[in-house]
Design a protein around this nucleic acid. Structure first.
Lengths: 291, 291
DNA sequence: ATAATAGTGTCTGTAAGACACTATAGT
DNA sequence: ACTATAGTGTCTTACAGACACTATTAT
């Protein structure tokens, strides 16, 4: 700590002792967590590979505001914990999963995003594999459920929209977002806004769509998708995961060439009695992007 | 607003009326702004093109903490303004520039990042062209200066580091960051931490390096660099801007092919009496990425 | 044989990188 | 003629995309 004096001839120590941080009115800060996983759907034919779905974890609110609406897990950041610590705490409380992939997405700071007052929220995205997911104990107290997500682009004369659909058993939630395109300086900047009040609490549909887009972008260039896989997987399972995220079919030969440098063979195979040729199991090569 | 009652039989209206947001201790929230531009350096030879430099705006602190150290512009978010509004206000106060490119970078929320108390800061990056910069009035009161930045990667047995060097006339500032690589789940996640207390206030060297990396990444895929150009520019000027940001030489023919789809010709040329063939002026084609 | 998935070989077009060349202005 | 920048043509290589083919298992 330095001994330099300021205009009022106070040293840093003296300044900080007298500093009253509460003289400005402060906002509250929360974190919201977007948790993705990929789960098998029930299959009709034992010979076919199970079809899979991208899932997001939603929680039914048991308090105002948005009472009984579905929302992302999250909560207030405590005064004595780092932002990231706060997210890992919430994640552990909600799913009992620790050491998983976590990435900061965006900070939402509009004045009116929460009717309780000025609340700024930093959104994070977490990815977990189905094995971890299966270990999550039933948390019926606060009703957490995995919803499959789909996101459809719709272009009309009134503009471009994104329609989000969430499903869990017989529960169906919808949201509609408008794509905005604003000229700032010489540059068009793309944005998203909630088009009509939807089935999710707060601005959470916007966060989910933003996370989906980030996941898609990163899937093309990084190994982010492997966070959704079990430790051992077949190349077909991996391809299906990519197809779900990118929302398009891929050609097998090309896909295998592309991921070859990211995986390493094991000498294990998928089990017998599956009605077709067994597949070799692979594992993620976590250092593939170093030379 | 719904009429549903919660466990205490309160409607949403009643709940919100009684809701006391101040019951939890709240952090303060600030914004920090990383403002980049590209400026000409003085030239010795009238025939040569002026050499250019990437600049960042820093402000000399006139109060504790970090009194007399250089810092990014920024300030507290007011309770009645959106995050983005707050940033544009600070930007206007500091540079008198409005409608420029602005992008949210990251939110820094470590407990001890500010000695005044718990302060969470959302960092933004702004890009402006040299013409706007030249309109900025002298703000000697709070001593704002454009520093040229350079960032050098250093690998040793002790780890990988980034050395940042800032220069303005005879002022020279240095900072050293360590690259971290943490295994979380199956995935390595890269990070940056301040290695030894440096010449910048707070964690601002980390923010600057993060912004530089984001700028570099986006330069390869988007038209972000055009925010640093004047309305009309030659392809050589554009190429020099890309070279400064990517920190490598590019081949002219290849570069021109690459940017061809992003620019449109005008029928103007650079002035006469420059000792060499005049160049055609181009303008940014802001809709190049639609179909 | 049939149904299903596993896995490989090869052609084509496009884009990136390297390099060599021509054009124009001013002194 | 010389120096400096402006601007173009073309070769090679790597890779993405499309497609056709072979291999293996269980019923």
């Amino acid at each position: 700590m330095s001994d330099i004096k300021n205009k009022s001839s106070l040293s840093e120590e003296e300044f900080l002792r007298d500093y009253d941080i509460s003289k400005f009115e402060r906002p509250s800060v929360t974190v919201d967590i977007l948790i993705f996983t990929i789960l098998n759907e029930v299959s009709d034919n034992y010979r076919k590979l199970p079809s899979k779905d991208l899932k997001v974890l939603l929680i039914k609110r048991n308090e105002h505001p948005y009472l009984n609406k579905w929302a992302l897990p999250g909560g207030f950041v405590r005064i004595d914990e780092d932002l990231q610590t706060s997210v890992y705490r919430e994640l552990k409380e909600e799913t009992n999963v620790e050491n998983v992939y976590l990435e900061q997405l965006y900070t939402y700071g509009d004045i009116n995003r929460d009717p309780r007052g000025r609340i700024i929220s930093t959104a994070y995205m977490s990815l977990m594999n189905s094995e971890d997911v299966l270990l999550i104990p039933g948390t019926d107290a606060n009703e957490a459920k995995w919803f499959s997500v789909s996101s459809i682009e719709v272009s009309t004369e009134d503009g471009d929209f994104v329609e989000l659909i969430f499903k869990h058993e017989d529960i169906l939630l919808k949201a509609k977002l408008r794509r905005t395109r604003k000229l700032v300086g010489t540059q068009y900047v793309n944005g998203l806004e909630i088009f009509e009040k939807d089935d999710l609490a707060f601005d959470h549909s916007k966060i989910i769509q933003y996370g989906l887009e980030r996941l898609r972008n990163k899937a093309e260039f990084t190994g982010i998708v492997f966070n959704l896989m079990s430790e051992l997987f077949t190349l077909s399972e991996l391809q299906i995961s990519y197809e779900i995220i990118l929302d398009k079919k891929l050609l097998k030969a090309n896909f295998r060439r592309k991921v070859a440098k990211m995986v390493e063979e094991t000498d294990e195979f998928t089990g017998k009695h599956i009605g077709h040729r067994p597949a070799k199991l692979y594992r993620y090569k976590s250092n593939w992007n170093l030379e």
